[in-house]
């Protein structure tokens, strides 16, 4: 049955309409969860607000479980789904640079769109920063085009590389998530006592 558009169940002409609708719901949830505030987001790194960890971890677990069931029932052909390919070295470096940008800027691309929408000037600057960063990356591309394409492992899954099945990965993630929800709630209580100017 699924995925519906690649399988022709829904005509591909609907693709962009569906894109806008999905974006609408996605953006709504991001803003409604508090991701339109860089101070809420950065809290995950300083222990005063773990909303990012809660929302992100819950979403990934729900999706993991959902895909396992959809696959089990034969409702979604996982082989027709886009599994992000792996380029080991470049993606490791990329994630480190993103982590640096995250801790300095306090947003990521998706959250900055919703923050601009409610009038955050700092989010607009973050967006301009992303634009400049991608432009600079493109201009400097000849310097690292070989590195950029290196470490290719195809559409590798976690099972392919780490030998942990999708089922076990989901179980482990769920246990780690539940433990972290409990531990971070305790940390948050202690840290919040010492923060007066940030209202929760």
């Amino acid at each position: 049955m699924g995925p519906l558009i690649p399988n022709g169940v829904i005509a591909s002409g609907w693709d962009f309409v569906i894109a806008i609708l999905i974006g609408l719901v996605f953006g709504f949830i991001l803003e409604a969860s508090g991701f339109s505030s860089s101070r809420n987001i950065a809290g995950v790194f300083y222990g005063y607000n773990f909303v990012v960890l809660r929302v992100f971890f819950t979403a990934v677990i729900v999706a993991n479980v959902g895909f396992l069931y959809l696959d089990y029932f034969g409702w979604l052909d996982l082989s027709k789904v886009y599994v992000l390919p792996t380029y080991f070295g470049p993606m490791l470096l990329g994630s480190i640079i993103m982590g640096l940008g995250f801790i300095i800027g306090g947003f990521c691309p998706g959250t900055t769109f919703t923050a601009i929408a409610i009038g955050k000037k700092d989010a607009l600057f973050f967006f301009i920063g992303i634009f400049i960063g991608i432009f600079l990356f493109g201009e400097g591309f000849p310097l690292y085009d070989k590195f950029y394409a290196s470490g290719y492992m195809g559409n590798a899954t976690i099972e392919d590389v780490l030998g942990i099945s999708a089922q076990w990965f989901t179980v482990i993630m769920t246990v780690v998530a539940l433990a972290s929800f409990w531990v971070t709630a305790e940390i948050e209580k202690k840290v919040r006592k010492n923060r007066k100017e940030y209202k929760f």
């Binding site: 470096l93 990329g94 994630s95 480190i96 640079i97 993103m98 982590g99 640096l100 940008g101 995250f102 801790i103 300095i104 800027g105 306090g106 947003f107 990521c108 691309p109 900055t112 600057f125 973050f126 967006f127 301009i128 920063g129 992303i130 634009f131 400049i132 960063g133 991608i134 432009f135 600079l136 990356f137 493109g138 950029y148």
Partner: peptide, 10 residues
């Protein structure tokens, strides 16, 4: 921060 994030995404 946005600049670094932008480079990292690519």
């Amino acid at each position: 921060g946005g600049m670094f994030f932008g480079i990292g995404t690519q």
